[in-house]
Structure formats: C-alpha cells, structure tokens
C-alpha cells in the first residue's frame, strides 16, 4: 500500500516538477530577485550598498520620481475605469445579445472574437498607422462629412490615452463577450421560463435573474481587467513609445518601470534599484487588488 502511494507520489512529482521548475525560474525567482535588488543602491550596473526601503521612498516621496509615479498610476486607473465601464459593459451587452440568438449571431460571435486572436504588437502597429493625422481614421471621418472632428489621436495629450484604450477595447471586447455569453447560456432555462410565465419583462429578467447568476463571470472579468490595467505595456510601447509620449500623458507604471530599470536609447541610463522598487509595487498592487475584488464579489454571488 505504502509502496503504491510512493509510486503514485513519484508519478505526480514527475508531471508537476517540470511545470514547477518553469514557474520557479521564470516567475518566482525574478520576483524575489527584484525584491532583493530594490533594497540596494545601484551604481549603473553594479549593485552597491544596502539601502533598505530607500528606493521605495524615492518612488513615493522624492521628486521627480513621485510625480512620474503618480502620473503613471493615474493613467493605469483611467485604463481600469474606462475598460471596466466601456469594454465590460459592451461585453455584457454583446454577450446578452448573442445569448438571445439575434439574427446572424454565429457570424457576429466570430467577428467580435477575431481581434482577440491578433498579436497585440501587430494591432498596436496597425492602429498606430490608422490613427495618424492623415491615416484611415481621419480619412473616414472626412468621408462622413465630420472633417471637423479630425484630431491627432495619438499626439494630443488629452486624447492619446483614450485612443489607445479604445484600440485595446476593440481588440479585447470579444473576450468578455464570450465569457458572458457562456455564463448567460448556463442560466437554467427553468428559471427563465418560470419568470416568463409570471409575466416578467426582458429587463426585469436580466436584472433579477441573469445578472445575479453570472456574478462569478463578472468576478473573473473584473479581476482580469484589474490585472490587465496594471500591466498595460505593449499597447503603449507600440503606439506612443516607451516615454509615455506626448508629455507623459500615456505613461503607465509598466512603461515607467521599463524606462527606469533598463533605460532607453533616447532617455538615459538604467536605475535598477528604483526600477526594481517600481516592479515590486506593481506586483503588490496586482496581488492586493485581485484579492480584494475576489473577496468583495464573492459575497454578491447567488447560488441556486
């Protein structure tokens, strides 16, 4: 019996270890390395003295790091709010429409989901071209007779972040749509039929029956949105560049972290200590926010 258990244990280890090794070397190890690095002062590429939380103090309390950090965090917050409001509401709307089997729903399901499969870098690059002053998008506006609405979508401080978010919503809205579609399709038909028989209207059914029953999916999408909004990087990198151009208006903690930790050709030398500190802050924020939202939304879950 014990021999069999041991053999079973070995087999389990055999299957688990490779995965564990990968997680350890490319996720856990770098995480603790950056925590370790963030506690030291750095002279260019050489680790210097132990400075405790000095680098964190720099990020939160010393100029110019502080302004840059809170500006970046503010943009991450914008990402979260707009994505949550626009993308996820649209996703819920699309998911609902598809679940009601609107004409052509199979076709629309695919059309909405296709951009999710595109490479994020390719999307950023192509939309970067479309959003140029004389690009497709402004051309389209002109065609519609709305030439007055033409803007430098990625070059205007007030618009750049929203333009990039809009592109990202275009790319990603298919994901929440399908998750919500699956969730709504899983709502037991008996509940809906009973409600219809009782004379409930479509709106009431959605609010009182469907919505409470898809809370688990809403939780998942919310957590993913939080994590996604904190980790925004590629979209900015491909569309407005590492410097959070123009005038830091599209800077996020991701681009700030990269620029600080690794430097960039046009902006200057790496500051590994401060960069690592920002990295640790990103991790802590992601972790904390996810725990909070899972805990918060679990309470609203309804079980049949």
């Amino acid at each position: 019996m014990t021999g069999k258990d041991a053999r079973k244990g070995l087999w389990i280890a055999f299957f688990v270890l490779p995965g564990l090794a990968v997680v350890f070397t490319i996720i856990l190890l770098p995480l603790f390395m950056s925590l370790f690095n963030s506690l030291f002062s750095w002279n260019q590429l050489l680790r210097g003295d132990f400075v405790g939380l000095g680098n964190f103090r720099k990020v939160f309390a010393t100029e110019p790091y502080r302004t840059r950090f809170f500006n970046a965090i503010g943009n991450n917050l914008t990402w979260f709010l707009v994505t949550m409001l626009v993308q996820n509401s649209l996703g819920l709307f699309f998911g609902y429409l598809l679940s009601r089997r609107v004409p052509g729903h199979e076709f629309f399901k695919r059309v909405i989901f296709i951009p999710v499969l595109f490479s994020i870098v390719a999307v950023g690059f192509l939309w970067g071209l479309y959003l140029r002053p004389n690009g497709l998008f402004n051309g389209f506006l002109k065609l519609l007779g709305a030439g007055g609405l033409q803007r430098a979508w990625l070059g205007d401080e007030n618009l750049a972040t929203f333009s990039i978010i809009a592109v990202n919503i275009w790319r990603w809205v298919g994901f929440p749509s399908l998750v919500f579609l699956a969730a709504i399709d899983n709502v037991p038909v008996e509940c809906l039929e009973a409600a219809y028989l009782d004379g409930a209207r479509e709106g009431t059914i959605f609010r009182r029956i469907i919505l409470p029953l898809i809370v688990p999916s809403i939780t998942v999408i919310t957590v993913l949105t939080i994590i996604g909004s904190l980790n925004v990087f590629e979209q900015i990198f491909t569309m407005t560049g590492l410097d959070g151009s123009p005038n830091f208006s599209t800077d996020t903690i991701g681009t700030l972290f990269y620029r600080t930790a690794f430097g960039s050709v046009d902006s200057g030398n790496p500051e590994i200590g401060v960069g690592s500190a920002i990295g640790v802050v990103i991790y802590a924020l992601t972790f904390g926010a996810s725990i909070l939202s899972i805990a918060g939304l679990n309470r609203k879950e309804v079980e049949l």
Binding site: R68, D243, P246, N247, T260, D266, S267, G268, N269
Partner: peptide, 19 residues
C-alpha cells in the same frame, strides 16, 4: 548622465509647449 536626463525632460516639455 543621470535620470531624469535633460533629454527626457526637454522632450516631454517640448511636446507640451508645441501643443
């Protein structure tokens, strides 16, 4: 030579100024 470099500062400030 150090962060924030003159280039980082000037590039961002010029974007604000030119706009």
């Amino acid at each position: 030579y150090q962060q924030p470099t003159g280039s980082v500062l000037l590039q961002a400030a010029l974007q604000g100024f030119m706009a």
